[in-house]
Amino acid sequence: MKKPVMTLLATGVAVALSLTACGGAASSSSTAASGGKELDGLTGVIGAKDFSEQFILAHITSLVLNAHGANTTTNTSVVGSANVRTAFETGQFAGYWEYTGTSWITYNKQTTPIKDKAEMFKAVKDVDAKKGIAWLDPAPLNNTYAFAIREDKAKELGIKSMSDVAKLPASEQTFCMESEFSTRDDGWPGLKKEYGLSPNAKVSMLDTGVIYTATQKGQDCNFGEVFETDGRIPALKLQVMDDDKKFFPVYQGALTIKSDLLAKYPAIADVMSKVSPKLTTEVMQKLNAKADVDGDDPADVAKEWLTSEGLI
């Protein structure tokens, strides 16, 4: 989602894009129950960024499209948001799941986020339409930044929101975060100013994966920078602090495809409209936990969920 964007190296992209059949679900059409043939003739690759949520979403998409007559595969081998977007724009991918905040800020160079999620989605949809990119109706999930704390510690301190955090003594305002987040306008500097956090707040810089366990231990910090749909939040019994001033940009997820492909196969939108509304932040947390906590294969996670929902 909001991982650091890689430098776009021509050779690296060429290698990555050549892997369009790797890491995919070439057997999706044979494993999915038939749901109709309205997408007969649709072929292509569903791409993904390099983290579990994206892998799961790519497999969900490929499996459900194939259940309606398509013959798609997945590619979970391309590394870096910029490379995935390039693969999509140059026709290597038929589609992939993107986040509104990423497109708005990273790809369209808009420095001011839109706080209302419906207005944000419309703005991103309109600006990307000029590039021949269609956004299908979004899922409710919002994979945005957040700060979390141990559930028992939150109860002890009597806090539920970032405004509550700002009222704590400076000694309790201890934070773990990535180095990139610490300098971003939509990260620590802006958050500290927006909520009036203590100038004496303690900040520890850690790698993304370490932040979750450090927050759960509570030794380096009370509050850890997390992504709201991460499955480790419920697994580690963390509580997300409500961003009550809506400081963080909205990162609502949706399937993006080329406009001409949607015009040729409008039933894609109909098929996905039965899937996307079910993908809430809470549902995505559970699916991500199966991959990141339990170690399940994202393709299996996707198939099991679609089957349980009666979608394939």
Rank of each mutant, 00 (worst) to 15 (best):
G35K: 01
L57R: 01
S29F: 04
T43K: 07
F88A: 04
L63G: 03
I56T: 09
A129L: 10
L19W: 06
G36C: 05
L8A: 03
A14Y: 05
Q54N: 11
G44P: 06
V64T: 13
S81V: 02
A25C: 09
G95N: 08
N71Y: 12
S18L: 08
K37E: 11
F51Y: 15
N83S: 07
T86N: 06
A48P: 06
A16P: 02
V15C: 05
V84S: 02
T76K: 01
G23C: 09
L19Y: 05
T102P: 01
V124K: 00
G12H: 08
K122A: 14
T20R: 13
S81T: 12
K115E: 10
T102N: 09
K125Y: 00
D126E: 15
G91V: 05
S103R: 10
S34L: 08
S27C: 09
Y99Q: 06
E38S: 10
Q54F: 00
K117W: 12
S28K: 02
T106C: 08
I114D: 04
G24C: 08
A118L: 11
L9D: 15
T76M: 04
R85V: 07
S28F: 04
W97I: 02
E38T: 13
A70R: 08
L57Y: 01
A67E: 10
F51W: 09
T102C: 03
E53Q: 12
T112Q: 12
N75G: 01
A48L: 01
A10V: 07
T76Q: 05
Y107C: 02
G41D: 13
T90K: 01
R85Y: 04
L39W: 03
T102Y: 04
S27Q: 12
W97R: 02
T7K: 09
A10Y: 00
A87R: 00
W104D: 15
V127E: 15
L65S: 03
S27V: 12
G69C: 08
V84E: 00
A70Y: 03
K49G: 10
V78W: 01
T72K: 02
T31V: 15
T7H: 09
S62H: 00
L57A: 02
T112A: 13
G80N: 11
